[in-house]
Each structure stands twice: as structure tokens, then as C-alpha cells.
Nucleic acid binder design. Structure first.
Lengths: 249, 249
DNA sequence: AAGTGGTCTAGACCACATC
DNA sequence: ATGTGGTCTAGACCACTTG
């Protein structure tokens, strides 16, 4: 069996190291879906042969992609494509209940298509008025309403979530695994913006708090591996339950 | 001239890689003050010879310390000991003024020695009742009071800050450089905890806001290179000026 | 020109996971 | 026993900074 070396020639501009070019080439193969999330990629030596570089150089490229969160290297087992963020750890910003080991629950209050307003379109990188799916979602701990979320998703992509065969009651408590299973969308990274404000009358009603009660607001942009924004989310919760810890280095 | 190899023998327990042991040994030499912050350490080849390892192994150790924030490597110039955090970017949590290019100002409202209360002692890793220096500090932008801070520093160490020859009016707008110059203390990393509350009457007075006004609270522990806590700080500011952005990967 | 860190190679051997 | 990633070596050459 003859061995084909389709990736041997890597565009290697001066000013860029070979391992960086290799990493870019491998990343392209990942993003293209050649190796699905969670699956193993070929062994180091095999990849080094394919690209015609020394083992050490290929290792350098793989380590780079590992640092960037695209690969997961496991001693003795192999190198795997990172499956993406599973639980969106929104609750790390809040502390509800005491020793609450009960997992947060999720219920979808509304699901509808909309024309994207300016802010939503800007966040998602769409033109204003393009179709989006809007979700309103309440998250509870031990039956107690805690967080209220507005979520916007670009629509051709998230069409499967509109299917009446899958009522929102069956969606489960985590959205990101659902995005992966039903829409083939994997969240690779996210950016959260935090501020404080007062609850609107309707939000206060849903959270069973007085209108105007102080709240913490978290606005999230979530991105897939190719870098496009695939979710815009706005979350509010009781400001007194807010807490967060940051390390500065 | 005979060459002495005092660091050749590095305790190298099984289960630990040689470069990790080398990194620990080098870090010890840094923490001990053998190479002061900001100064250059010997060249890679020289260190490799000193420790009797291959160049690549020493490079691995140096890269590790660089990732951990102890060293700063500069192509063509050398490897330097990180000088420590200079500006403690407390204002990255808040947005005061508009295009405010005016740098934040600092004024010390109080400076006194105290016996550490339980919370302060715990944060600083002291026994309760041990002596600490307490500072009260107001930070302003364009003459407008913005943040009120309570700062506690362990006392044998920060004695120089009590000197009446250096009135607090001359301290300047940044504390961490002062800690370095006058006390030989360099802040290597810090941990900030954020929560929400209401202004006490006295804090409200200092910030020219109504008592009970919503505020953001930031509690900071700052550590030096050896890992001991050398500052406990409590900061409050108008909650409506608070904003913060986090990346999740 | 000399000295520094950055890249790349080719090969040996080790540690871990799996069959 | 086999295959995987992790460590270490020894050496060549490149790129950047400084005198």
C-alpha cells in the first residue's frame, strides 16, 4: 500500500516557525471536522511522517494546540480532539442554597424565532434583522428560582431546536450538550461580561423578588472552534448571591 | 580558574522529571534573592553546564518558570527575573469617567498599627492579635472619589512604611512599587474575591454617595514569590460603575 | 562580531494504558 | 507485548540584540 503524503507541503512563510504552521494546518483539519470532537487523532510519529518533519517539531505543534484548548493529550492513550465545554458553569458566579448538592434545574419559558435586534446581531456577528432563535429560561436549585436567562442563537444553524417533536421539557438541564447532539455545534470558549443593576418588573416576578431588587448581570458570547459566535446570552440573578474569584498573575 | 559546580546534584525523586527538579532548584535561587527582581540570570548554556544537564533540558526548566511567571525570557537579550506586579489593576473592575486618560490618584486617609483581628490574621497567615499595619486609602479619578480601600500589612515586614520621614502624602499613586522600594517586598500574584453589598455610612460619606447605596466589594490577597500572603485588602466602589470580563476556556 | 534565546533534527529510552 | 505520549540528549543552525 503506497503512503500518500497530502499534508507534507505546509505553507511556511518566513517569520513563522514550522511548528506554528503545522499547528495551523492541524487546527484546520480539526475545524473542518476531519477528526470529530472526542475522537483520537493519529499518533505523533505518524503525523510527523505525514508532514515530513522531525518528531520533536510535531510534538511542539501538538503541545501548542493542547495549550490553546483544541487537543487533549493523554499519556499512553493518545491525543484527542477536545469535546468542547459541556456544562456552562454559570453557577460559578452565584452561591445559592447552602451545601446544595442538588444539581441546578432548567426550564424553558419561551421559544420563538425573531429578527435580530441591533445588540443581538452585533454580538452574534449577523446583520440586523437576520433570523435568530430566542429562548427564555429559568434555572432553579432545589425548586427555588435563581437565574433568569435570555438566549439568542443564529437561526439557520439552530433550526433543529425548533422541531416540535422535541418539546423543550425534554431538553434536560444543560444546553451545550444539546447543541452538540442536535445541531453539531460545540462550544469551544466563551466570554462573560459582569455588571450590576436592578431587576425589571417581569424578571423580578419570575425570580420571586421585589421589582428593582439589585441583580448581577452576566452577558455571554460563546464561540465554536472556528471562532464564530454561536450564542449570545443574558443572565440575571440576585446580586446578594453573587460571588466570584479571580487570580491575577 | 577551576569551575565549581555547586548545583550539579539536584535531588531528583522518582516520579519527578529532571526539568521539574531543575525548575524547583532555580526557583529556590530566585526566591532566596540570588538574582534580584529585574536582573538577568546566567545564559542557558552556562546554567546547563552548572547543573550537568543537556541544553534542551535546561531550556524546558526555564520555560516552565517562565510560564509560572517567575522569569521573563527575551530573545537575543537574556532571561530576567520578573519584577513583580507593578500597578495593582484594581480599576480594571470599574469604569469611572468617560474617556478618562487621567491616571487614578491615591490619598492615604489613615495609617496605624493594630492587633490583627481574626479575619485579617487568617488572610495574612498570622496568629490572631499579631501586629499589622492598617491603611485607609481613597482613590479618585479627575478629583472624583471612586474607591475606598482598607489595607492590612504584616508588621515586622512593613515597618519602613511607618517612618515619619516619609509622609504618606509622598507615597505616590501606586503602592506595589513602594512596597518593593521601601520594604523589599514584590507582589508576584494576587487573588481577588468579588461580591455585592451596600455602603456603610462612613464609606458612603467618603465616596459622596448615599448610605446604603449598592456597592461592589473586592477582597484581595496578594502573595510574594515565596508564596506567603503579604497584603490583605478590602475595596468598595459604586456597584453601577462595576464591570468585568472573563474568558472561559 | 559576539552573545543571547528560538528552532529543528535524529535518536534513545522511560512511563503509562491497553490488549 | 504493543502502542502511545513524556523525557533527555547532542548537536546544528537561525534570529534577535548589543557593542
Amino acid at each position: 500500500m503506497s503512503t500518500i503524503l497530502p499534508f507534507q507541503a505546509v505553507t511556511h512563510e518566513p517569520g513563522q516557525s514550522r511548528y506554528a504552521a503545522l499547528a495551523a494546518a492541524l487546527k484546520a483539519r480539526i475545524v473542518r471536522g476531519e477528526w470529530p470532537p472526542g475522537s483520537a487523532i493519529p499518533a505523533e510519529q505518524s503525523l510527523a511522517d505525514q508532514h515530513g518533519v522531525a518528531l520533536g517539531t510535531m510534538r511542539r505543534a501538538l503541545e501548542l494546540l493542547s495549550e490553546q484548548g483544541f487537543l487533549d493529550r493523554q499519556h499512553g492513550r493518545g491525543t484527542f480532539v477536545k469535546p468542547g465545554l459541556s456544562g456552562a458553569p454559570m453557577f460559578r458566579f452565584f452561591r445559592f442554597g447552602e451545601g446544595g448538592d442538588t444539581p441546578p434545574q432548567s426550564s424553558i419559558l419561551a421559544r420563538q424565532t425573531q429578527a435580530a435586534k441591533a445588540e443581538v446581531a452585533a454580538a452574534l456577528g449577523l446583520g440586523p434583522g437576520e433570523p435568530v432563535l430566542h429562548l427564555k429560561r429559568l434555572r432553579s436549585v432545589a425548586g427555588q428560582a435563581c437565574l433568569l436567562e435570555d438566549i439568542w442563537l443564529p437561526l439557520p444553524l439552530f433550526e433543529p431546536l425548533l422541531s416540535p417533536e422535541h418539546p423543550t421539557a425534554d431538553w434536560g438541564d444543560l444546553l451545550y450538550p444539546l447543541f452538540g447532539q442536535r445541531c453539531g455545534v460545540h462550544v469551544h470558549r466563551a466570554v462573560d461580561s459582569i455588571s450590576f443593576g436592578q431587576l425589571s418588573a417581569s424578571a423580578a416576578r419570575a425570580l420571586k423578588l421585589p421589582a428593582g431588587h439589585p441583580c448581577a448581570r452576566v452577558s455571554r458570547q460563546a464561540f465554536d472552534m472556528s471562532g464564530r459566535c454561536i450564542e449570545w446570552r443574558h443572565t440575571v440573578g440576585d446580586a446578594h448571591a453573587f460571588h466570584y474569584t479571580v487570580s491575577i498573575v
